[in-house]
Amino acid sequence: MNAYTPNEMMTIAAARSLRNEDVCFVGIGAPSAAANLARLTHAPAITLIYESGTIEAKPSVLPLSIGDGELCDTALTTVGVPEMFRYWLQGGRITVGFLGGAQIDRFANLNTTVMGDYAHPKVRLPGGGGAPEIATHCGEIFIIMAHSRRAFVEKLDFITSLGHGEGGDHRQRLGVCTQGPTRLITDLCIFEPDAITREMTVVSIHPGIKREQIQENTGWPVRYAADLKETISPTDSELSVLRDLQARTRAAHSG
């Protein structure tokens, strides 16, 4: 059987979560790899939108940054950034948004702002960018993050973007009617929110991964779904499409 890396498993599991009919707000990096893998495998009609304004982008190689001409050259159309955030994101035309972060908590709130105190940070991170509004305007949110104790924390240093808040119906109490994080895909497992508490709960463990590994890398006591599954291994086809995409990307950017 094929060998694969934990990162490949994460990207492939994220790609499988996307549907042909989705309108997906894509970020650079792991989300972009997953979204394009979905487009090149089971979801050829998926609409990919990048926040730089490119609508229905079909990049043949992964973009270096959000301003990459490859996105614009392959898009159906490119709009200005105010229009992107007003008509398309706030206007409710995105079914799924991808987010990641430096820190996540059990309710999938995210921190990409600072480590330590805001006014005197130990580490100044890039900041939220589009995340605060992506988190509330997209129909649902998928989060991709590699598992580590440093990232999966009991308490965030700063809440950059809302997940399920303090849990339960907190989003609804804030007046937010979108679903929020419905899936958290890591290199070890897949979480989904508990139906009542909204705490992120492991629903699927990647092949060969032990529960102890998940707990060691998570800063809160991990809960598991009653019908816990094992994630299906990457198929040969998924792996070859992903690797081809990454090889094309490396070749295009090595000039």
């Binding site: 988190a135 700063f158 809302l162 907190h170 007046g175 937010v176």
Partner: peptide
Amino acid sequence: VFRGYVGAELIRV
């Protein structure tokens, strides 16, 4: 005027 910052901590700082 826009719909934003809901549940986000930038409002505090």
